[in-house]
């Protein structure tokens, strides 16, 4: 790899229109056009929400950042922006390294397909060739600990089993930057231990972890830095030991 793994975000603002049921209706949109604009600031009929504003963030290899904040404070939006799914309205996101986002258990998971097929599908999305996936299949299968269940459709799995599958498949790709939302708390204690080992392994490989969670114990376990989001505005990145102060602030 020519570049060191890093995340650099400057002046990031993301606004997005929230399309309510009304805004999704073509009739209402057409009516709005013919009437020639009605109340409301936006001609598109959507309310604009500022999810993040003026966010700056610098992370380098070995950083494990915890994101805290109330519901709707912008944690997930930031993770989605870092994954490349959301485009900034202002500012810049520059990520060096391969990104793996575990934001939604459902990514690439087809409930009627088997566990094996889902691992293949997810691997393909992550950019592996069919050959590379087959080469890693045994290792991934072992890590999931699902054994014979892997040959069964995913819809027969429990939530914890799905989490195991998704986590195993997503982290099987050698990612440098791992973005995770909350759900890592799913799964039994055995799996938690395995996941913990794998996450630490990732960070040892000079990766970056960004984890959003409300669980302070979880954050203390995985992170060495923490940032608090409040209504889309970020606090400075501080050491995890100052988590209490940050929460109190």
């Amino acid at each position: 790899m020519s570049h060191q793994v890093s995340i650099s975000v400057s002046g990031l603002s993301i606004r997005f229109p929230v399309y309510g049921v009304d805004a999704k209706s073509l009739k209402k949109s057409l009516a709005r056009v013919t009437v020639g604009g009605t109340l409301g600031s936006s001609m598109t009929g959507a309310t604009e929400v500022t999810a993040l504003s003026g966010l700056n963030l610098e992370l380098r290899a070995g950083d494990r950042l915890g994101l805290i904040g109330h519901n709707g404070s912008g944690k997930t939006t930031l993770l989605r922006a870092l994954s490349g799914a959301y485009e900034p309205d202002e500012g810049m996101i520059d990520v060096h390294g391969r990104i793996a986002a575990l934001l939604d258990l459902g990514l690439g998971i087809d409930p009627s397909a088997t566990g094996y097929d889902n691992i293949r599908l997810r691997g393909r999305i992550a950019g592996l060739s069919a050959k590379e996936i087959e080469a890693r299949m045994d290792e991934i299968a072992e890590f999931t600990g699902l054994g014979p269940f892997l040959a069964m459709p995913v819809k027969t799995y429990s939530a914890g089993m799905q989490a195991r599958l998704a986590f195993a498949a997503a982290t099987a790709v050698e990612a440098d930057v791992l973005l995770m939302d909350e759900w890592i708390a799913v799964g039994d204690s055995d799996f938690q231990k395995l996941a913990h080992k794998r996450l630490l392994n990732l960070v040892e490989r000079a990766g970056i972890l960004v984890l959003a969670s409300h669980d302070t114990d979880l954050l203390r376990l995985y992170c060495n830095k923490v940032m608090r989001l409040e209504g889309g505005i970020a606090s400075p990145v501080t050491d995890i030991r100052k988590l209490e102060e940050l929460l109190a602030a």
Binding site: M1, S2, H3, G84, M92, V95, I125
Partner: peptide, 13 residues
């Protein structure tokens, strides 16, 4: 996820 090792996203330019 992407195989690309560099991702740059910017505001409108």
């Amino acid at each position: 996820m992407d195989t690309a090792t560099h991702m740059l996203r910017t505001g409108r330019r």
